[in-house]
Nucleic acid binder design. Structure first.
Length: 407
DNA sequence: TCTGGGGTCCTAGGACCC
DNA sequence: TCTGGGGTCCTAGGACCC
């Protein structure tokens, strides 16, 4: 395989390096995407759901659809839709509350199959992954055969349908796996990425969301080929970096390598939308502390610390604010994270009065490896960390609700 | 009966330093 | 004393993705 063994080795797919290094094999990038993932996992566990319109998501007043079966989509249901709206469109739908631990488990098993069958796998979210199948050869050893094995094993071992596209770049493979659904395999022949993309609606290109799509539609551009035909410099002037990327991707150019294992997370956060708006400051502070506990636990599990802590607030009118603070020393403990969150909340409320709060969240960014030496006078910090470790340990064994801390 | 929760990346302005 | 430019960090917001 053309994998660089050292992190500093030039990427064989990156621009000129490709020509100088290997006798450049055509890139074969696969994108795997589990179909209606949450619904499929629920069906694997409860076959009575098969064939019915199923909506996985929050059923409360503010719940949204996380995953909608194809039967429900016939009625106009889709993910991210308010559940109330989905049920108006399809009253006979079966609503299933999400079971994220089950999805994590299936996701892990799926990624294990992928790593068995492909040399370089980059997970991309819970239900998809890229694989670099370049140089696998033809026939039984080829890229297509590897993709077929993944599909067969995922179906047999996990009872889950997965769609895949093999193409010359990540972007094309990603667009193609959507086109392959449900439960299909699509291969874009070598050198035909641009031709494959050209007739497709622009909105199918990742990067083009509602907003960008609208701006481009206003210019009369509605297909990927239409964007490919525009002058690249003009796109850059008009849209900046997004214009440059659009121009390249629309022409099937995307040298981004598949990175084995992906990268570590850049941030960790928790947030909650209350069932009803909250004006009780103590309740907000308690919620922030719960978030700090879980964010801290994640950081400790990853052996990382955060240099920056962010408070997120959403008022009842959906206005959303972020307030962040970069600390002198990177933090990891529940106490430090909570203190930073409370401080940000206090500062905010010193400037504007408290309005009914719909959502409150706490985030940790600017993450660094946990190599910080505590000074000799940091006895209290050391004790706090010991408590954190003990709490993590008990929760790991007996579940999250097994320990309750005071404020 | 509006709009979840977890992320990534980009932009833009201001502070600060050289 | 005035003026300029570049680079980096921090903060806030927003588009986009699953």
């Amino acid at each position: 395989m053309g994998t660089p063994s050292s992190p500093n080795a030039p990427d064989p797919h990156d621009g000129e390096a490709a020509g100088r290094l290997a006798p450049s094999l055509p890139r074969r990038i696969a994108h795997f995407d589990l179909d209606t993932f949450f619904v499929s996992v629920e069906r694997a566990l409860a076959p009575s759901l098969i064939g019915k319109p199923v909506l996985v998501g929050g059923s409360g007043g503010r719940g949204v659809v996380a995953s909608a079966s194809y039967e429900s989509r016939e009625f106009g249901c889709h993910s991210a839709q308010p559940m109330s709206q989905a049920l108006r469109l399809c009253p006979q739908a079966v609503v299933v509350p999400p079971h994220f631990d089950r999805y994590q488990e299936s996701s892990r098993a799926f990624h294990t199959i992928l790593r068995d069958e492909s040399p370089i796998v980059e997970p991309s979210g819970i239900d998809e992954a890229y694989a670099d199948l370049t140089g696998l050869g033809e026939g039984g050893t080829g890229a297509r055969a590897a993709a077929e094995r993944v599909r067969a094993r995922t179906r047999e071992e996990l009872n889950l349908p997965v769609s895949v596209c093999i193409a010359g770049s990540r972007t094309t493979a990603k667009v193609g796996s959507d086109r392959a659904k449900p439960d299909g395999l699509l291969e874009v022949p070598v050198g035909e990425d641009a031709a494959f993309l050209a007739p497709l609606p622009l909105r199918e290109l990742p990067l083009v969301g509602p907003r960008f799509g609208e701006q481009l539609a206003a210019l009369g551009v509605r297909t990927i080929g239409g964007a490919a035909a525009l002058d690249a410099r003009w796109l850059e002037q008009r849209f900046g970096r997004a214009g440059v990327v659009l121009s390249e991707r629309a022409r099937g150019l995307d040298p981004t390598p598949v990175r084995a294992g992906g990268r570590g997370a850049r941030s960790v956060s928790r947030e909650v939308t209350f069932g009803e708006d909250v004006t009780d400051l103590e309740r907000l502070r308690r919620t922030l502390r719960d978030h700090a506990e879980r964010v801290g636990s994640d950081l400790r599990g990853q052996q990382r610390r955060a240099r920056t802590v962010t408070l997120k607030l959403r008022w009842a009118d959906f206005t959303t604010l972020n307030r962040s603070r970069t600390l002198e020393r990177p933090v990891q403990s529940t106490d430090d994270l909570a203190a930073a969150g409370w401080g940000l909340l206090d500062e905010l409320l010193a400037r504007e009065s408290l309005r009914p709060v719909r959502l409150i969240g706490l985030g940790a960014t600017n993450l660094v490896e946990d190599a910080v030496q505590l000074g000799f006078d940091d006895g209290s910090a050391r004790r706090a960390e010991q408590v954190d470790r003990a709490v993590d340990e008990i929760r790991g064994r007996y579940g999250r609700d097994s320990v309750t801390r005071g404020m």
